[in-house]
Amino acid sequence: MAADPNFTNHVFEIARQIPAGRVASYGAIARFLGVANWSRKVGHAMGEVGGVEPPVPYQRVVNSTGRLTGGTSGIEHRAKLLATEGVTVIGDKVQDFKNVFWDPSKELNY
């Protein structure tokens, strides 16, 4: 089942606002959108970023503990993208997660 296009577009809109060098969680995006228990749906939406314009910085969205999710090659690619932005990832875990975490509910005024 495909994600609701409106929900997916809202997820993309929030993800595009995550500053380089910062990360947000699936759950934080879901909470900001008023559907706190939809973090998995946020993850499914992020799986649809291929070819979307303007691009969505999918590498900046991680799970609630700062881990990158997805297949091994995808995790490695996301870790490299984050490294170019100054975010350190060891294995599949964002280091200094508390300091690089970006919470849309505290940063955006919608």
Rank of each mutant, 00 (worst) to 15 (best):
Q59Y: 07
R22Q: 12
N9Q: 14
Q17V: 00
G70K: 05
V56W: 07
P19A: 10
D4Q: 08
V94S: 03
V11W: 04
L82A: 03
V23Q: 07
V56E: 09
R22W: 04
V56C: 08
I14F: 03
D4E: 12
V42F: 01
F101C: 09
D96K: 10
K106M: 14
P55W: 06
S25D: 05
Y58G: 12
G34Q: 06
L33V: 05
G43F: 00
K80L: 12
T88D: 13
R16S: 05
P19N: 10
K98D: 15
Y58D: 14
A28W: 00
T65Y: 14
L108Y: 10
V94C: 06
G34D: 04
A36N: 07
P54I: 07
V23P: 05
G21R: 13
I90L: 14
G66T: 05
E53K: 12
K80P: 06
S25E: 06
G21A: 10
V94R: 00
D103I: 03
A45K: 01
P54D: 11
A83L: 11
A15M: 03
V56T: 07
D103S: 09
P104K: 00
R31G: 02
N109S: 15
A2E: 14
T8V: 13
E76P: 05
F97P: 03
R60D: 10
V35W: 08
G47P: 00
G47R: 00
H10G: 00
T88Y: 05
V35S: 11
G70C: 09
F101T: 06
G71I: 04
V94G: 01
Q95H: 00
I90K: 15
P5I: 11
K93L: 13
K93I: 08
H44A: 10
A30Q: 01
D96G: 10
E107S: 11
V62R: 01
P57S: 06
V89E: 04
E48I: 01
E85D: 14
K41H: 13
I90A: 13
N9C: 00
S105E: 13
P54V: 06
I18S: 01
N109L: 14
N109G: 14
N37D: 15
V56G: 05
G70Y: 04
G51Y: 08
I29W: 02
E13H: 14
R16T: 05
E53R: 11
K98G: 10
N6M: 15
P55L: 10
E48A: 10
R78K: 15
A15E: 02
P5R: 12
A28H: 01
N9I: 01
K93R: 15
Q95T: 01
K93C: 10
P5C: 07
S73D: 12
P55Y: 08
L68S: 06
W38T: 00
M1D: 14
V56Y: 05
V94N: 02
L108G: 09
V61L: 05
N99F: 13
F32D: 04
I29C: 02
A20H: 11
Q59C: 06
F12I: 08
R78T: 06
N37V: 04
P57F: 02
N37I: 03
I14A: 05
A3P: 12
R67G: 14
Y110E: 13
A79T: 09
Y58E: 14
Q95Y: 00
T72W: 10
T65F: 12
S73F: 05
E13N: 15
